[in-house]
Design a binder for these strands. Structure first.
Lengths: 401, 401
DNA sequence: CCCCTTTCGTAAACAGCTTGGACTAATTAA
DNA sequence: TTAATTAGTCCAAGCTGTTTACGAAAGGGG
């Protein structure tokens, strides 16, 4: 029930907005002349010069080498986002790892660090302390490259109160009502933001993966649970309370196993990572990721033609296809993107999935959206988190003077 | 893949936006003084005076009787939306009726006309001609009240190409690729807009029903088919191609009857109006609406305790509850609103519906959204259509000079 | 090699919009 | 009748993008 865009516009508002417009074009077209920016934005050359001067003063962009675009005429100077200016810090808490990464304003990944850890049994406090340490390392590493971290976004696997920074319920982590915002360490000194792992993974896909090519898309992000991030017009669709896209508890098999949510036959119980491993006869223990992890071993068995593995994954694919048919009917995306564990398993998951999906809402629409595979796999959420911070800066550069 | 709000802001943009801000507050607080508008909007009194003068010049608002708000001091003059100024025309084509209505800028319904007609078997051309005649009547009636119709919005039951004004597929009407935009008659002379009946019914609920109270809501609009309109932040969520909210083809009973869409056990085949009537042993012929129609007779039987009727509606309720569990998981609304045929049947549909819904995504979230009943019933879509035109004018009064 | 054309960037004057403060108008309380 | 209070307007000022003009830096043609 957020108030819609109904605010009065004053001169200052105009400036802020236009600064953002120019900065966004600079970030997207990297070394770009003022003249070209004028074409791109529709502003006059004068206005572009003024706005760029302000962005330069704020340390966000910098004049670089001359750029010669046409045949004749004076070359322009290339304006670029400062690689040594502001940066975004992305953090992620997941069931079997912690991760941090730093992304500069040009959306280049400048630092990345993943630590395997079994967070399932640990005290939330200990996990957050470890995360804080990771964040400190990242900020230090960024500083070593001349980057000033402007803020942080933290990806968490579960339902949360984003404003308050509280993890309401993360069943796979065993957390209930854990305040993250009040965590010790450096995180407190930075403006921080909290979001669902699924949402941030979708944003990661948007900014660091197939992004624009996918249009409005639904990114299925299966790790332990199964979530989905819904991207519409370059923004995450969150619903009224931020819980939109909870794919994992759609009913896949009405007569299926009982789920921890109280329902029966939830998608997660059929197509979740643990369910697949169990059905394939593999132990569902950590470490799950990596080529030597559980999923890696599942892939090995699939490649070897193991019947149990093939059956498990095929069943998961069909269940996922059914759930995605509902998603397509309700959300109507341009594309469906398979991420998380489904990315390495795509070769086996996709055929049954597409078969079921095509049979669902078939004739009522002009076909079914294409199902693509994410190339980011498990790193998507941290990237999305860091990218979100960058996005905030680009969307409102006026905050940095 | 619409471009997001990334446009440069000039002085003219600022004006347009601010005119809209003031006009919206005038429409919402009806007779309101300039001083109060200044408080509400945050503008200075000077700016409000200037903006109101422009709106007055455009014929959108008018100075009225003095308003005395405080105890002491000079009374202000009440600014109101002109009831004799611009108005919006809403039109609706449905399976068993045509409808038109006119709404003024204050969102008062000034004219309303519904014509029963079996449009299922008729030529699209004949239906559109009848609609045109209805539109002409409505415009004339509006003119008689001093209202100038500024535009029209047309509600259509099916999937459509909104930009082109083409009905792609309306199974219950038997239409495929029928161009509505090129229809003869008055519609061509007015700026017209086309939208799904479900979307417009949701907007009708927003502006003429429980609206703001519902927050972000999903409005289930069952007539012959079952659609849903998703309202987020006061706007309809349409998805990438405008097909979002197609509730009718979610799978309700996997082993259920085959649907015209090619699927099996679609919600529409269980909880659709015709399916309920059939299961209750009633003929599914028109006229369906009204106390004497098929639905009216179904209500009579329910009130009489007829077992077949009770069973049919209960089954429909459970199916709808299952589908809504998916909706809640994916869309996360504040409220679910039952409209269309489900409105008169709510007393019998809601209990089983809520039972199933509560058992679905229960523990993962803080409860399930409340299920409310629309008071508008079948008139919602036309009202929403007319309201949409009014909304367009209020959102951009600069279009009217 | 010189000059003309083309393009880039900036400077100064200009125009549109909101703001701020002063001023007039209308009403109530004393 | 007078003082206090609130509403609305007028006019100067400030901020911001636009227009016009001009100097700077290249390449092409003679």
């Amino acid at each position: 029930m957020t108030k819609s865009a109904n605010a009065p516009v004053r001169h200052a508002t105009m400036r802020e907005r236009n600064l953002a417009v120019v900065l966004e074009h600079v970030a997207r077209h990297q070394p770009v002349t003022r003249a070209r920016l004028a074409e791109l934005t529709g502003f006059t050359k004068t206005t572009v010069s003024n706005l760029v001067a302000l962005l330069e003063g704020a340390g966000l962009v910098r004049d670089g080498a001359p750029v010669h675009e046409g045949e004749r005429g004076r070359p322009g100077v290339g304006v670029s986002v400062r690689g040594d200016g502001a940066a975004g810090l992305g953090l992620e808490v997941n069931v079997d790892y912690l991760a941090a990464c730093v992304v500069d304003l040009a959306r280049q990944v400048r630092y990345r660090h993943v630590v395997s850890a079994d967070n399932r049994g640990r005290e939330p406090g200990a996990v957050l302390a470890a995360l804080s340490a990771l964040a400190d390392e990242a900020v230090a590493a960024a500083a070593g490259q001349g980057l000033a971290v402007a803020g942080a976004a933290i990806a968490l696997p579960g339902l949360l109160d984003r404003e308050g920074g509280v993890v309401r319920h993360a069943p796979n982590l065993g957390w209930t009502d854990v305040p993250v915002a009040g965590a010790p360490g450096l995180a407190a000194a930075l403006p921080a933001e909290y979001d669902n792992e699924a949402n941030l993974a979708a944003l990661g896909e948007l900014w660091f993966g197939g992004g624009a090519r996918f249009g409005d898309f639904v990114h299925v992000s299966g790790e332990i649970g199964i979530g989905a991030g819904i991207v519409v017009d370059g923004r995450v669709f969150r619903g009224a309370h931020g819980f939109a896209g909870e794919l994992g508890h759609l009913v896949a098999e009405p007569a299926g196993p009982v789920c921890s949510c109280g329902g029966r036959g939830c998608l997660e119980q059929v197509a979740g990572q643990e369910a697949m491993l169990r059905a394939a006869g593999l132990p569902a223990t950590r470490p799950a990721g990596g080529p030597g992890g559980s999923v890696g071993r599942l892939v090995e068995r699939l490649e070897a033609g193991d019947a149990a593995a093939l059956g498990a994954v095929s069943r998961a694919g069909r269940a996922l296809g059914g759930a995605l048919a509902s998603v397509v009917n309700l959300i109507d995306p341009d594309t469906v993107v398979l991420g998380g564990v489904f990315s390495p398993l795509a070769a086996w998951v996709r055929p049954p999935l597409e078969e079921v999906l095509a049979g669902g809402p078939g004739s009522l629409r002009r076909g079914v959206p294409p199902v693509e595979v994410s190339g980011l796999a498990e790193g998507a959420a941290v990237l999305g988190a860091a990218g979100l911070v960058v996005e905030r800066v680009i969307a409102d550069p006026a905050l940095l003077l």
